Amino acid sequence: MALLRQWGLTLGKWAGKPVARVQEDSGDPDVRRVRAAAAAADWTTVREVLEARPESDDRTELLWAVGDTAGVERWIVPIVEADQDATLARLVAGIRHISWGWEARTGARASAVSSKQFEVFHARLHTAEQWLYEVAEREPRWTSPWYGLQVTGRGLEVGQTAARRRFEATVRRDPLHLGAHQQRLQQVCEKWGGSHEEMHAFARDAAFGAPAGTQLGQLVAIAHIEQWLSLDAGQDAAYMRGPQVAASLREAAEHSFRHPDFVRRAGWAQILNTFAMAFSLAGDREGARECFRATDGRVTEFPWYYINGSDAAAAYRKHRSST
């Protein structure tokens, strides 16, 4: 499921370069801790870790670490049902049902997904929406439920108007929420009923409408990668190698990770990986080398799985070696 979460790696050394190995954390010990607790059905520890990370610090990655853990639905639902005041448990249950829903659907094209799979997918997303709306009502300042509703909305095809309102509800609470902007970018992509023009306009408006040094510059690179993905062989390379794409990437880089105000907070490695891939595809070897050096072998699954869905690290290594 391409939900645009951050992923980390284990570092080693080979031929003078860091060996890239993707693993399911970003170097944050709380991610590993909460995932282990979720796998052990240890709600006390899961709650403790989540409560220690306030919404203002963006606990999205921690929530997905729990939500992506197999079997969470078996123990979180009884907690929700037993305690009508368990707001955080409802949030966790909602996020888990999103991930669980996509597990049923799989990442296959719609034409390859059976009607039974879609039935289960939609049922789980409807359950997620019920809990997320309850959380949003109980905790009106929380961002996470509205972010989750952006994801369910796309899966349930609520339409562009409703999807936009969910995005607006998210960014009213956190104007620079990277995940919310990533989800909105996906929503306005051609493949989800938008257009290339709308996608690029949104990416640029969000990136350059934000203060310099934020993570939102990544949206410009994602938009170019999305258009590259939509094109046939030959046309895709010609698009990415166009001078306007390289210029656009350099401008976005200057406004984001190259700016002195850029801080390596949660998600920074995904930003640099995205620019590394985009610069590499654009033939900007200098820009790509800069990003590969900055990541120092830290590989994130997104966006490299677009090139090699089974081995993101292999895609990273291949493009790094060509710069």
Rank of each mutant, 00 (worst) to 15 (best):
D57T: 13
D57C: 08
D58K: 05
D58E: 14
D58I: 14
D58M: 07
D58P: 00
R59T: 03
R59M: 06
R59E: 00
T60E: 05
E61F: 11
E61Y: 06
L62R: 01
L62Y: 08
L62V: 05
L63M: 08
L63A: 00
L63G: 02
L63V: 09
L63D: 02
W64V: 03
W64G: 01
W64N: 02
W64C: 04
W64Y: 13
A65C: 15
V66G: 07
G67K: 04
G67Q: 00
G67M: 02
D68T: 05
D68Q: 11
D68S: 07
T69P: 11
T69N: 01
T69W: 02
A70C: 00
A70T: 02
A70H: 10
A70S: 13
G71A: 09
V72S: 02
V72P: 08
V72Q: 13
V72R: 03
E73C: 08
E73N: 14
E73Q: 15
E73G: 15
R74A: 12
R74E: 08
R74F: 03
R74L: 09
R74I: 01
W75T: 09
W75P: 13
I76L: 13
I76R: 08
I76N: 12
I76T: 07
I76H: 03
I76W: 08
I76F: 09
I76S: 02
I76E: 11
I76P: 12
V77D: 09
V77G: 03
V77E: 12
P78S: 10
I79T: 07
I79A: 08
I79M: 11
I79D: 11
V80A: 12
V80N: 13
V80W: 12
E81R: 15
E81F: 03
E81N: 15
E81T: 11
E81K: 15
A82S: 14
A82W: 00
A82T: 10
A82I: 04
D83K: 03
D83R: 14
Q84L: 10
Q84P: 08
Q84I: 12
Q84W: 01
D85A: 15
D85M: 04
D85Y: 04
D85Q: 15
D85I: 06
A86L: 10
A86Y: 00
A86N: 13
T87W: 02
T87V: 15
T87K: 11
T87C: 13
L88F: 06
L88D: 05
L88Q: 05
L88K: 06
L88C: 06
L88T: 02
A89G: 14
A89I: 03
A89N: 06
A89H: 04
A89K: 07
R90M: 05
R90T: 00
R90V: 10
L91F: 05
L91A: 04
L91K: 08
V92W: 02
A93E: 14
A93M: 06
A93D: 14
A93S: 14
G94N: 12
G94W: 10
G94K: 07
G94H: 10
I95D: 07
I95R: 10
I95K: 04
I95G: 03
I95V: 14
I95W: 07
I95N: 05
I95A: 12
R96M: 09
R96S: 14
R96A: 15
